[in-house]
Design a protein around this nucleic acid. Structure first.
Lengths: 338, 338
DNA sequence: ATGAAAGCGCTAACAA
DNA sequence: TTGTTAGCGCTTTCAT
């Protein structure tokens, strides 16, 4: 039987509003009264009911985090960081999973809308059409995706891809294959553009394969195709695909990196354990989670004063990525370099 | 500007209670009125405010899932399954992370208590003392841990360990090392007991090392110690440790499985990518997540009728585990078998 | 089948 | 500094 504000008020012989103030505006209440109230609250195990509070204040103290797939190793560090950042600021977090289906995203936002002050969107698919409708109902921050009017946190994968390309170039590679991610992935589109552009300007030939589902199975299945392209190096849309590729190449008898160099993107924990250890572009997922929450809460608090002013609406925060060179990349084999 | 029940009532020229009924007890309202109301609600984008509803019904439609570490690859499949199961039943889920600190767990439960109908506890540390206090404030289901008076879902790791031991025995191993998990881990304690007991009855020598933090670093660092024990096989508390061990052994020049067999527990996705592919005990984490939610919601709904009756209070659901034999185990080396 | 009224736990003017 | 009052959005008796 949880106790309410009234139980505390009765126990201290004060009015409920005094108890309320003790928790929401302590400076407005006499120090000794406050002490008595706090003591009684403690003794009775009283905790303000956030739902009731939200009814009148309009603020819930909750946020939502929507991801494409909780079990995809890319997301947990992001979720964890977001949760910890949110909790440090007194917020609780709902986590929801679209299961890679971008249509449920909008539903999820709608469902959560009344229970949260804002939502962090980490389902990096395009399809912004419907998002316009919910904007305004609830604060939004997008991760790895740009939506008009929605602040976003972007991990600079294109730059990482460029770093990877330059690493490969310096190793003598002249023909690289690009394993493209899922159709509609905002990040994949940007990576592809960056790679093809950079390659053109540095005289590298790029063979594009995809779009593909971003799983290790895809990598395993496309291994043979990649080998046939004649490329001496592969850049995969993500580590999962790169790891699958490693498996597939192994069973084909192709040695990595002697015969073929492989680079992934993400630096999921797994990539350190694969053999050879995967060279990959590290994505700052934890930092992105924290930044997204910061942005969301900042926007929340500025919302009242914002009106037409220059708030955080258009903000696009770009986080740097770094190439982590491990053992899956090496000099281009002599016979294929040219 | 989200619309309220009143907007809908006004639009249809009915009283708010009729609108309310349309959503919470549709059979009590005239079919044509209902249709009109539904239409207007749709048009106005009306969605019942769960917080307001919970204030009067006492049920929130939310549950909490508290885990030791979201980023530990063991948990995401469990969280995902729990979230999907909950959502399928109309519940939203809060996810919180204790960061392996079991003291914050009780705080988290308290904080969430008013906003949820129940909490799934997946922070597999012992220390049940304080839990008694919150029981009653909120429904609880424990995963991989037994708390008096709290229903629980247990993955049968001890049996998995026995399967592993029997696999090793059949390969001729007679001395195995056990890498123990963190102090206070309920599962680790049970595994240790099962292994030592089984070993005794089958004439196997067990060397115990630990307790240890359950990370890959631990595995890497204890590799040398394990080798010195003279054991021909190792069973690690979890895959992370086993994977670290693989790394450590590799840098020591110890070949797996020719010189030493390694078995993990969990079957995290990573273990499929390690070289050699890790033999491990698969834990049914997704099934556990679903079962925990089912148990929680069943308990919730039976709570009213329960009183002193035989509810779900004492339930202990045990889920089977299975040994997955991959490439990290092999015949005991002749020189060490005896 | 629908309406009227009370109240869930809390906050926020306003008064005192 | 504290009390009074009204009301957030909704459900739920009880009438009608």
């Amino acid at each position: 039987m949880p106790s309410t504000i009234r139980d505390v008020a009765r126990a201290c012989d004060v009015h409920v509003s005094t108890v309320s103030r003790t928790f929401s505006a302590p400076h407005l209440v006499n120090a000794r009264t406050r002490a008595r109230i706090l003591e009684a609250a403690e003794r009775l195990g009283y905790r303000p009911n956030r739902a009731a509070r939200s009814l009148v204040t309009g603020r819930t103290g909750n946020i939502g985090v929507i991801v494409a797939d909780i079990a995809n190793p890319f997301f947990p560090p992001l979720i964890k960081a977001a949760e910890q950042q949110a909790r440090a600021r007194g917020y609780h977090v709902f986590v929801a999973d679209t299961d890679e289906d971008c249509l449920v995203e909008i539903d999820l936002i709608r469902e959560l809308a009344k229970q949260v002050d804002g939502v962090v969107l980490c389902s990096p698919r395009m399809g912004n059409t419907a998002l316009g409708a919910v904007r305004g109902e609830v604060g939004l921050v997008a991760v790895n995706r740009v939506v008009p009017g929605v602040p976003s946190v972007i991990m600079d994968a294109p730059d990482g891809a460029r770093q990877a390309l330059s690493h490969l170039t310096s190793l003598g590679h002249r023909q690289v294959a690009l394993l493209v991610g899922p159709r509609g992935s905002w990040t994949s589109a940007r990576i592809t553009r960056a790679v093809t552009t950079t390659a053109r300007s540095s005289g590298i030939t790029v063979t594009v394969s995809g779009p593909h589902r971003p799983t290790d199975l895809t990598g395993r299945r496309t291994a043979a195709e990649i080998v046939r392209t004649g490329a001496s190096a592969v850049l995969a849309y993500n580590d999962l695909m790169a790891l699958g590729l490693l498996e597939g190449l192994d069973s084909l008898g192709v040695r990595v990196p002697q015969d073929l160099s492989v680079v992934g993107i993400d630096d999921i924990p797994m990539s350190r354990f694969a053999r050879p250890h995967l060279t990959t572009v590290a994505m700052p997922t934890a930092a992105a989670g924290r930044a997204a929450v910061d942005l969301l809460l900042r926007e929340e608090s500025s919302e009242t004063t914002e009106e037409e002013g220059g708030g955080t609406r258009g903000i696009r925060l770009t986080l740097p990525t770094t190439l982590v060179i491990r053992d899956s990349t090496g000099p281009a084999p002599a016979g294929r370099a040219g």
